[in-house]
Design a protein around this nucleic acid. Structure first.
Lengths: 344, 344
DNA sequence: GCGCTTCGACGAAGCGCTTCGACAACCACA
DNA sequence: TGTGGTTGTCGAAGCGCTTCGTCGAAGCGC
């Protein structure tokens, strides 16, 4: 491998001039720059990453800390990771994967102290998250994907659950639905401090109430069978049910199955809208699910951009970003059977 | 951050002794080692990653090159990536993500020349793959996930499609099935040099033929609708059809739907076995699909181990590994209606 | 008690780059 | 013609570690 000194010698300039030409940190005359570039091309010069980091005391690596055990949504995570890696690369950074569980906060900090990563993206943060607390205390640049309870001075990006729930209710209400139930993640996920479960619950309740509608929400395990049971429960509780919003992909399949078993048509009798959905999953249902797609890619992009700005400026003025889900029409939502005028 | 010199001073030894104590490269007496360790703990010393790479001329980073556009479901890929990252970490390496398309082989090489990564894992290799060719020529350590046409001296790990197809046929034949069709990926994927399509086709044909059975294979686009059409086609071509092996997840859902539409029961009338399946997908069908799960995690593990051995030894003696899929029982396979004695 | 090996520790020379201070050379202006 | 401010370039001092050559001290056999 050619070194910068080789380039300098060939271009008949000093080593530092080559460095300045490369970084643009100081002015270099056009003629000199040309000679240097020619030399670099001739030698196939590529600056050594380690030497660069060492001398400049900064790394061009961003770390993505994600929990070893994934919660269901493989697809959204894949979109997120892919997008984050791409955006990082566009900005001259590399994305490394750190599979750590929440309890391994100390190890994350060790790696940061090694200068391995310039900043850390923490996925799937819990309401109270040791990793975030330690990063904050250490002063290392980081950005959360999700939100802890404490938010003061902590940069984050998250799905806009409130807005998504509201959009979902709005969409169904516009189609004349009045009896709209909500099927959420499991009770257990809430107990473990999994924030989306809370936020969606709240968002749904608010969205319903402000439209004069009565919220009917149930929690449900992440299996089709649990979904079937939940669907039965909902129908028993509210026979006039005409639409279900779900935020639980496996269970959604059970809901569809249970409705069909009871001779109810989807969407003619009951509409189903799956929110915060993974890509592709809707197509596996018959008819294909109408969904509100989780913004995995946008979250990845925003997360990286946020982190880069924290790295550059310390803490940005507006550290937070909320990204809503976007509607993807499928075949499981239709106008309510006997549309009545909207109340609002 | 404390440096090695700080540790040395505190422990009253020379800098190099600290280094040797840390790496074990040269013997250090127990007493000295203890003083050094105490000093390191007291100072919270973490060796600087960049300085280490620079001085030792080796990086502790492995790169995973994957195509920007993913084919089908993210689930298997997610399992692969997660597993690779974990295994890498267990061996003191970091996994970075390089989202490059096949045409960006040159950029991959540039990054390797920067010393960014000690080795490269190339996912989703095509039968003729520029990235692999360039890596091979450059002498950089790499391992393919999948196989190019040319294999000489090229380390790889891959799914054992032949074995998986054979296992699938065997499993169904043992249950008395004789008319077993195969639904593969699209014709187009084959035309683009996507090797799994070929390999599974061949494996299936060989498996059928050696059992005295007649292969009936169709290719099919990656959508439920294409799957419905393919199912119709298969039933028309072979009315005695009692089982379908599929290697096309979206289409599989169409197959199930089409069979059910025709009043055929799955699995009582027709069994369905989805091979090389992504995790979780089977549960979204009703009844849940019987699948042969793609060994994403094992592939990730083996890929990293292979790559590490290439980095250490130049080229390992046995550079290749084949990993079969594993059966996961669901509810879409049952004994054939009128079981006849097996022919073999 | 001698020379021999072995063990443990040291000092110094880099690894390839960034960055600071210095300084000619050149310009414009008076 | 001198002054002061640019502009472009250079040399050298690190960044924090690995690793090579070296060497004193201790241990060994005879």
């Amino acid at each position: 491998m050619a070194t910068m000194q080789d380039v300098a010698t060939l271009a008949k300039v000093s080593l530092s001039t080559v460095s300045y030409a490369l970084s643009g940190t100081r002015p270099v005359s056009a003629a000199t720059r040309e000679r240097i570039e020619a030399a670099m091309t001739e030698l196939g010069f590529q600056p050594n990453a380690a030497a660069r980091s060492l001398a400049s005391r900064r790394s061009n690596v961003l770390a993505l800390v994600y929990p070893a055990v994934e919660r269901g949504l493989g697809g959204t995570v894949a979109e997120f990771v892919d997008s984050a890696a791409q955006v990082a690369r566009e900005h001259g950074y590399h994305l490394v994967l750190w599979p750590f569980r929440t309890s391994q906060a100390e190890e994350i900090l060790d790696l940061v102290r090694q200068g391995m990563a310039a900043g850390v993206l923490v996925m799937d943060v819990a309401l109270d998250d040791d990793r975030v607390r330690m990063l904050q205390e250490s002063g290392a640049p980081y950005t959360m994907i999700g939100r802890t309870r404490e938010l003061e001075g902590r940069p984050w990006v998250d799905i806009d659950f409130e807005r998504t729930a509201d959009d979902a209710v709005q969409y169904l209400a516009d189609l004349g639905h009045r009896h709209i139930a909500f099927l959420n993640h499991s009770e257990q996920s809430a107990a473990e401090g999994y924030a989306p479960t809370f936020r969606a619950d709240d968002g749904y309740a608010v969205a319903m109430t402000r439209r004069g509608l009565t919220p009917v929400a149930v929690h449900c395990g992440e299996t089709p069978n649990a979904g079937r049971a939940a669907a039965a429960e909902l129908l028993d509780a509210e026979p006039r049910l005409s639409a279900v919003i779900t935020m639980n992909e496996y269970a959604t399949f059970g809901v569809v199955a249970e409705l069909q078993r009871r001779g109810l048509s989807v969407p003619d009798d009951v509409s189903i809208l799956s929110i915060v959905s993974s890509p592709g999953v809707g197509e596996m249902s018959n008819p294909p699910l109408t969904t509100m797609h989780a913004p995995g890619a946008e979250l990845g992009r925003q997360g990286v951009l946020r982190l880069l700005s924290v790295i550059a400026d310390g803490t940005p003025d507006l550290p937070q970003v909320l990204v809503p889900c976007s509607l993807e029409e499928g075949g499981t939502v239709s106008r309510a059977r006997s549309p009545r005028p909207a109340l609002d």
